[in-house]
Nucleic acid binder design. Structure first.
Length: 487
RNA sequence: CGUGGUGUACCCGAGAGGCCAGGGAGCUGCCUGCAAAGCAGCGCACGCGGGUUCGAAUCCCGCCACCACGUCCA
């Protein structure tokens, strides 16, 4: 097996060889829980979910860590002016929402979005606030090695000294002199930093900030810097070296550059591969909280089923830009219905045991080759659709053995892509189904009688009535079949 | 300006010197009382200009346009 992935650090597709035989360790940056999730967040999670599922299919035991950044400037700022769940209350009764409550509320929103689209839960999902001691230890190691220093003024900050680390900039191949500290940051912090590009490992407590967002440290009370959080948590759960570090492309710089610098400067080998997913754009512009052009997963789920949304967000190559347009979901829905139509028709005519649907035995070689090659999902979907067509042809010709093989292949492919986790809309189950079946079958019997008499008006009237109620009738060689309209 | 990346048909979207991508939309046919589904086929391509080659969307050179990041971002 030769898995190949694009590594952002080396800017090339190269062979993936796990550091430890039979295992893979993956860390990817989750959300800063300061607002509602948008589809860009979910696209990232789906991309790494596909990666995880594929590594597992390839026989690796995968440990996945996705962090939750639950302390940050924006969370504090938002809680200071937010009235959260009390928003509807009388102004006198409103209470500012505590920062940690706000963070937890949004964290749950993210979990809901991930769950609804079939993103597997990570092995560990650490929160930044639960790892302050590990962060202190990392800062101390950096100070001991001469790569970090307490602020030159009395702010209580601790900074990473970028000039002390010659490899700073290597992840994004930038020359340090070409980088600029943000102008406002530069003006404000020039007196505390050795270099305007130095970034905060620890942020000293400032008057007016909530005392609950304050931790003691050897350098004064305060809270952790953003980049440090991930470094400390990766190492705690995956060790000083691990296979893959992932995240959105927009995190490459400064976040991942800084993470890599501080961890390697502290003596850790850190990530073997860096993988970044492309952005989701809305009519050509990056979808982002700060621009305010976001589309939420919930909005998409109002337009299409979870299975369709998952298909749509996961169909493009993970490194490409995904431009969302309103018609995108309709096109995805047509493709998914084509797949599901085959699954439904084939399942109805084929009996087999669940154990026969073993993905390892049924995955087409071309699909495997596509996925092995930097997760080429679009090409893999081509194989999936070709298999569907072959399966439909086999069904039409009565070749049930071929249809069965196609069905099991299709089920295997949809499973590894995570589509099965988002359940297909099932026919109504149990007693309701039994009742429906009796009623509809009676209608179909009446219609069959009308058709036998060539009474097309009566036949069509029955079909139209059922269609209006969401029951789709299709005439086939073996008589009419019905199904409930999806979505 | 620096760094990384794009540009493929009506839309989405792979591929990477010759040999079918795939999906959606459209058209035609088969099947059908009609429809739907399915199947078969059709049309419309590789940003621009050069070069290499028997042959270039693919390699080389030069342009153009666009996107992302450049200390808030997935």
């Amino acid at each position: 097996m030769t898995l190949r992935f694009y590594d952002t650090a080396s800017a090339e597709v190269r062979d993936f060889v796990p550091l430890e035989d039979g295992k893979a360790s993956v860390y990817y940056c989750g959300a800063t829980v300061q607002g509602m999730p948008h589809v860009g967040h979910v696209r990232s999670a789906i991309a790494f979910d596909q990666l995880t599922r594929w590594l597992e299919f390839r026989g690796l035991r995968v440990t996945v860590v996705r962090n939750v950044t639950d302390i940050d400037d924006k969370i504090l700022a938002k809680s200071a002016q937010s009235f959260g769940p009390d928003w509807d209350a009388e102004p006198s009764a409103r209470q500012a929402e505590e920062w940690w409550a706000l963070a937890y509320r949004y964290e749950q929103e993210f979990e809901d979005a991930y769950d609804s689209l079939g993103v597997q839960r990570p092995t560990y999902e650490p929160r930044a606030t639960g790892h302050i001691p590990e962060m202190h230890a990392l800062i101390q190691r950096l100070i001991d090695r001469g790569h970090a220093y307490p602020a030159l003024d009395d702010s209580g900050d601790v900074y990473f000294d970028v000039r002390s680390w010659s490899k700073y900039g290597s992840l994004t191949r930038q020359n340090i002199d070409d980088m600029q500290g943000a102008p406002d940051v530069e003006a404000q912090f020039i007196s505390r930093k050795r270099d305007p590009r130095d970034f905060a490992l620890w942020k000293g407590f400032k008057d007016g900030e909530p005392v609950t967002a304050k931790w003691d440290s050897p350098w004064g009370a305060g809270r952790p810097g953003w980049h440090l959080e991930c470094s400390a948590m990766v190492t705690k759960y995956l060790g000083p070296r691990f296979d893959i570090h992932g995240g959105g492309l927009d995190l490459r710089f400064p976040h991942h550059e800084n993470e890599m610098a501080q961890s390697q400067a502290a003596g850790d080998e850190f990530a073997n591969f860096w993988m970044h997913n492309g952005m989701v754009t809305f009519e050509g512009e990056k979808m982002s909280k700060s621009i305010g052009n976001t589309v939420s997963p919930a909005e998409m789920l109002e337009l299409a089923s979870p299975r369709v949304v998952r298909y749509y967000l996961g169909q493009a190559h993970y490194r490409s830009i995904l431009d969302y347009r309103p018609t995108s979901l309709q096109e995805a829905a047509a493709a998914v219905e084509r797949i599901d139509g085959f699954i439904a028709k084939a399942s109805a005519r084929i009996s087999g045991s669940a154990s026969e649907v073993a993905p390892q035995a049924n995955m087409p070689a071309a699909f495997i080759a596509a996925m092995d090659d930097d997760l080429n999902v679009p090409q893999a979907l081509g194989v999936l659709h070709e298999t569907v067509r072959a399966g439909n042809t086999a069904l039409a010709s009565g070749d049930l053995d071929a249809a069965k093989a196609a069905l099991y292949s299709v089920l295997s492919m949809t499973e590894v892509l995570g589509l099965d986790a988002v359940k297909r809309p099932e026919a109504v189950q149990g007693r309701e189904h039994a009742a429906l079946e009796v009623l509809i079958d009676a209608q179909l019997a009446a219609r069959a009688a009308a058709r036998a008499n060539k009474d097309w008006a009566a036949s069509d009237a029955i079909r139209d009535t059922l269609a209006a109620a969401g029951v789709v009738v299709e005439d086939g060689a073996d008589g009419a079949t019905w199904s409930l309209k999806r979505d």
